[in-house]
Amino acid sequence: MDPVRLQGLVKPLLHAVLKKVHPDYFTHHPAAKAANHSAVQRLQGLLTPVLAPGTPTRNRDSAGGPLEFIVRGDGEALQTVAFEFSDWRPRGRAELQAQRAREMLALCSALGTAPGADAAKEIEDAIGQAAQSGPPAWDGAAAARLRAARAREAVQNYKRGQPAADPRAALMAAMRRVAWPPAPGSAKAARPRLDRSKVFFAAEVAPERYTGIAAHIEGLLPELEYGSWCALPMMVVDRWQDALRRGATRYPGFVVVPSDVDANAFRRYLRENLDEIRRERCARNTRHGR
């Protein structure tokens, strides 16, 4: 697939959409103008793999919910047209470009700006084999099923009330079992193990990342001072901002850990919030009779 050719074919589609929904056409309707401004910005971000192939697209090629455009219908009445880009992440950039181009064609049809049959066929020809394979078995429905199953498993594990591992107690017990004292400087620090029955994942974390994130966090447990909070449940979020709602925590009683946790920032978070998290957990357990 030729990305330059595809870029030249998709640009007119974007221009046709902008002619219909550009915020400047809705100056007398502030709410519609604001909605279209937001939707156009997101649309341009989603089309970055096609329109700017060399630009990194981290966190900009995720659909993040449907786009809502305000358009003028019959008699100048305003109406909303919602369109959702797929959250499926292809393995290669060429597959992502093909996916976005096809979705842009579908968006044009939804907005009444579809190109002619010849233009649509030319885009399909430019896409070539990259888009013909389609999404793998791992589609949005499969991700939702796995996320739901993982959530049920986490809830069941947490209800069992298994005691969290105490790394220091385990180390002291092992030392008491040896028949000779270790030579100076020869003792190795015990590596704590993550109690995965107390690990929960927020909705914005992709299920296929669960195992890798848990392994990454487990490798950092000594730096994260796990021994001081291992009895508390952990909520893994994508970013710190995902844990807040109107300035308050969305997960009272949980230790929040971002997927790309930084040890220094996390220790500051513990110093400022650990006592409050414990109080919230105690209050929650009291309400549920635990």
Rank of each mutant, 00 (worst) to 15 (best):
K33P: 00
L224Y: 05
Q44H: 04
L105D: 07
P115K: 03
G8R: 11
P182K: 10
P252T: 05
V256M: 00
D166R: 07
D24I: 03
H15M: 08
Q99L: 15
R145M: 11
A203M: 02
P66S: 12
A126M: 09
R191T: 15
T211C: 01
A169Y: 08
A32G: 05
R209I: 00
Q41N: 14
A190F: 11
L96H: 08
L194A: 08
P23Q: 10
E208Q: 14
A214G: 04
L51G: 08
W88L: 07
P163I: 08
C230F: 01
E204Y: 03
R5D: 10
V81Q: 13
G116Q: 09
R102E: 14
T249D: 09
G161N: 08
L221T: 07
Q162M: 11
A34K: 12
H22W: 06
L78S: 08
S228K: 12
E223F: 08
V50R: 01
Y251P: 07
M172E: 15
F83V: 01
A231R: 12
G75R: 12
S259K: 12
L146M: 12
Q132G: 13
G45I: 00
L221V: 07
A143P: 00
R168P: 00
E84R: 15
K20C: 03
P53W: 07
H15K: 12
W240G: 02
F85W: 06
A263R: 01
R250A: 14
L270H: 09
R100C: 02
L274T: 09
L14E: 09
R100P: 06
R60W: 04
L111V: 03
T48I: 05
M1K: 03
A143R: 12
A119M: 10
P167R: 03
S38K: 14
R245P: 00
F201W: 06
L146E: 14
L78P: 04
P135A: 15
G289F: 11
H15Q: 15
F200D: 04
L220A: 11
E272N: 11
A243G: 12
A265P: 00
E208L: 13
D195F: 06
A117R: 13
N36I: 10
R287D: 06
I127N: 04
N285A: 14
S38Y: 00
L111R: 07
A189M: 11
D24G: 11
A190N: 01
Q41K: 13
K159S: 07
P207K: 08
K198C: 02
R284M: 04
V40K: 04
K11C: 07
R177W: 00
V50E: 06
V237A: 09
A154Q: 01
D118T: 14
E272F: 09
A106P: 02
F200P: 03
F26T: 10
A164C: 11
D166T: 02
A263K: 01
A101M: 06
A231K: 12
K121F: 05
T113G: 01
R93W: 06
A243W: 05
E208G: 13
Y269T: 10
P30W: 05
P23S: 08
A114E: 13
P3F: 10
R193I: 11
A164K: 03
K159C: 10
R176K: 10
G247S: 04
V155R: 12
E280C: 04
F85I: 05
E95D: 10
D2S: 15
R58C: 02
A202N: 05
S38P: 00
V4A: 15
D87P: 02
A165M: 09
R168D: 12
A179S: 15
N36R: 04
A110R: 15
L18T: 03
E122Q: 15
